[in-house]
Design a protein around this nucleic acid. Structure first.
Lengths: 198, 198
DNA sequence: GCGTTTTTGGACTGACTAGTCCTAATTAGG
DNA sequence: CCTAATTAGGACTAGTCAGTCCAAAAACGC
């Protein structure tokens, strides 16, 4: 159970989150993952690109497990779950000192036009994320206005969150991020049917 | 009026918008701007970094002139102006085939941790942008709910727009962008006082 | 023990990077 | 016409990068 491959992916994930894909060199990864040299790395990955795709995949898996899991928590009220999820993103970004933009935002902007494979993968990632939120909203459908478009709403939520995280990376301002998060919650609430407790 | 310096900035702006700052090499700029060589470039800029800052500044100036100018149009109703502004961003992104993320979003994510000077400049850029929107909202204040926080609202708008543009770059989906833009307008409208025409 | 997988270590290629230096031709402007 | 700004062209430094190749030690599985 040495899991060298996993160690490489973890090291790369950290570096990419900090510096971006392009600026993360294979040598950086080798150092961080404590490998003996280039050959050691290329024993596990045939290219840096392959590593990038793997990181992207793994990144989403862990996000799906640790982050999105809140969205599926069956015992908590759907809307409450959404609030918790938003809060967890804010907390994560605050913890990390606003150095990271979003789990995928950083990757998205630079990788999208770097390689078509990356872009397609990112589309999938955002789609799955949106699907999770949509499922939650669907669950809360009885409480929503009948004209509420859950698919649209889900994508709106993600866009705002991504934008807010990106801006907080530039501003390094916790207050702004919290304010946007709060407004976002209010926005979702505004789609609630009147008379139904949020 | 040869304005070589301006030609360099334009060339660099285009390249940076497409590929990002780091991946835009000085040689790329030299080729695009049709310069004779390195010395020609360094006759006008002492470093690539100086060029980056200039592009960032110029980028905002042109955005302020061509884009933000709608926000100040005195003859049009404030809310209508905001709608026109949002539409213009959507149109711009559609025109460009979703290759660019946002006027600053791309620059933001990669430049923010590249150099402290870049980050500070970006903070200014976003602040000025937010100030413009806030001024518009302030103008529309009599129509807004008394509890509406114009500053917060302005930053929320920008975050959502940035996020939407970023996602449209990944998705290359015009429909999604339009949907988010429409929802965003509705969001602003929800802050309007009842009984007052939007 | 034996074969396979993994690890180690380093040399090396070829391409690209920002930036410097030097010289000379060309083009304005006053 | 003369001077200064601009353009031209190229050589060069010193660094980074991804990726290849080779050979041998070490660890592991059976």
């Amino acid at each position: 159970m040495k899991d060298t491959r996993g160690r490489i992916v973890s090291a790369a994930a950290g570096l990419i989150a900090e510096k971006g894909f392009k600026r993360t060199s294979v040598d950086d990864v080798i150092e961080r993952a404590d490998l003996s040299g280039k050959s050691h790395f290329y024993h596990y990955f045939k290219s840096k690109e392959e590593l990038g795709l793997e990181v992207l995949g793994r990144q989403f898996e862990s996000f799906a497990e640790r982050g999105l899991v809140i969205l599926r928590e069956p015992l908590i009220h759907p809307m409450e779950r959404l609030h918790l999820f938003i809060d967890s993103l804010v907390a994560l970004q605050t913890e990390r000192g606003f150095r990271v933009g979003s789990p995928f935002g950083t990757l998205a902007t630079e990788m999208a036009d770097l390689h078509e494979g990356f872009r397609e993968r990112l589309v999938q990632v955002f789609d799955r994320w949106a699907a999770q939120i949509e499922a939650l909203l669907w669950e809360a459908r009885p409480m929503l206005n009948p004209d509420a478009d859950t698919r649209r709403l889900a994508r709106f939520l993600i866009a705002t969150l991504e934008g807010a995280l990106m801006m907080s990376k530039v501003n390094r301002d916790a207050e702004m991020l919290r304010a946007i998060a709060a407004d976002l919650k209010r926005f979702v609430s505004s789609h609630l049917r009147e008379g139904v407790p949020a």
